[in-house]
Computed example of a mutant assay.
Amino acid sequence: MDRDHLIKIRRDLHRIPEIGFQEFKTQQYLLNILKQFPEDRVEVQTWKTGIFALVKGTSPKKTIGYRADIDGLPIVEETDYNFQSEHPGFMHACGHDFHMTIAIGLLSHFVLNPVQDHILFLFQPAEEGPGGAEPMLNSDVAKMWKPDLITALHISPELPVGTIATKPGLLFANTSELFIDLKGKGGHAAYPHTTNDMVVASCSLVTQLQSIVSRNVDPLDSAVITIGKITGGTVQNIIAENARLEGTIRTLSVESMNKVKERIEAIVHGVEIGYSCKAIIDYGSMYHQVYNREDLTIEFMNFISDSTNYEVNECREAMTGEDFGYMVDQIPGFMFWLGVQSSYGLHHAKLQPDETAIEVAVEAMIKYISFKANN
């Protein structure tokens, strides 16, 4: 597909963002494209709102996997695009419209230009939550077509177009959502001694949670606990009976994640005793770290540096979460950042990635996948 066709696909997809496991229009749009290819060259299977597309090799000895996530975010778009989201309150603010378009560009090339090995494209739902990678990988279709190696990319607004960045080993952190519900005893604001105030309890809890990283995590490791939302009470003259804290945990090691959760549970239990309340902890969606296979990542970086004119940088690990971590935990592979140069970052309502980056990714990955599939 030429540049104009790919840009049209990206803009069409940008108009129809849908959240995890509700990507019905997105799935149908992708299926309509896939139906245009010869059935003897590409076999398609659906899984929930996701898609597996197997491009057949000429004399396959292995299967190369390429994953693209397809869901959007619950964000009100504030770009100046003339192709803004047609779904109020939702936006492709993490670049998944780019990810899908690049995958389609690669797929169309290999359908028309066969290589030796099979190439499996996984259009994965629910990356932003509740997490689609792990269940998709455990599906019957994935077991039937399980790749021997797998790769994926993520756009990076901070990097200029023409730049690819990654690193061997740990790339993205272990992440977990955090929800804590507190239930005490409400009452009249004039009689606090007859109540158990959950606003006071929640404020104390937030302060105590922030001591975990500074006092319970190895200073040479890294961890973050963020409480991004607190709700409690009803009106100004009623002492709050309930409060809810919503946040996230991010660590660079599995051990630190387990330690942080142990401390959260201990502190919350202390708050229950100290404030005579009941507490429920829910960790919501949890994502495994993205750990790039060292030898494959180094090979990829060297190959792109030697075979293209694009800049290849070794980046630092990030506290970003990505459920692609489940895939590289089971299948040798790696993920990399693709520079798209935007004034606004990921998950921002004004994110506007540079569309010329689509060509960069398609060209680079055609060369790399061809190299891996013919050797």
Rank of each mutant, 00 (worst) to 15 (best):
R3A: 02
R3H: 14
L6T: 08
D12N: 13
R15T: 09
R15M: 14
R15W: 08
P17M: 10
I19D: 11
F21V: 09
K25I: 01
T26H: 03
Q27M: 01
I33G: 00
L34F: 01
L34C: 04
K35H: 07
P38V: 08
D40S: 14
R41W: 06
V44P: 02
Q45D: 11
Q45G: 01
T46S: 13
K56R: 12
K56I: 04
K56Q: 11
T58P: 03
K62M: 05
G65A: 05
Y66C: 12
D69P: 07
I70F: 05
L73P: 09
P74M: 06
E77G: 09
H92F: 13
H92V: 04
A93I: 03
A93Y: 01
D97Q: 10
F98D: 07
T101K: 02
I104M: 15
F110W: 08
F110K: 08
L112H: 15
V115P: 05
P125L: 06
E127Y: 03
E128P: 01
G129M: 10
P130H: 05
P130M: 10
G131N: 08
G132N: 08
A142N: 14
K146R: 15
K146W: 14
I150F: 11
L153Q: 14
L153D: 03
S156M: 11
P160S: 13
T163C: 14
A165D: 03
K167G: 00
P168M: 07
S176W: 05
L178G: 03
F179V: 15
I180V: 14
V199R: 00
V199M: 13
C203V: 10
S204L: 10
L205H: 09
L205C: 11
T207Y: 05
Q208G: 03
Q208D: 08
L209P: 07
S211Q: 13
V213G: 06
N216T: 02
L220R: 03
L220D: 02
S222C: 08
I225G: 07
I225N: 05
T226V: 13
I227P: 06
I230D: 00
G232I: 04
V235E: 09
A240M: 06
N242V: 00
A243L: 01
E246T: 11
T248A: 14
I249G: 02
S253N: 09
V254D: 15
M257H: 10
N258D: 14
N258G: 07
K259S: 13
V260F: 09
R263I: 13
I267E: 08
I273E: 10
G274L: 07
S276P: 00
S285R: 13
M286P: 00
Y287R: 15
R293Y: 10
L296G: 02
F300T: 06
M301S: 07
T308W: 12
E314S: 12
E317M: 15
G325C: 14
V328S: 10
F336R: 08
W337A: 09
L338I: 02
V340A: 04
Q341P: 00
Y344I: 00
H347C: 04
H347N: 09
H347V: 06
K350V: 10
D354Q: 12
D354T: 14
E355M: 09
I358Q: 13
V360M: 14
V362L: 11
E363R: 03
A364L: 13
I369D: 02
A373V: 05
A373D: 10
N374R: 09
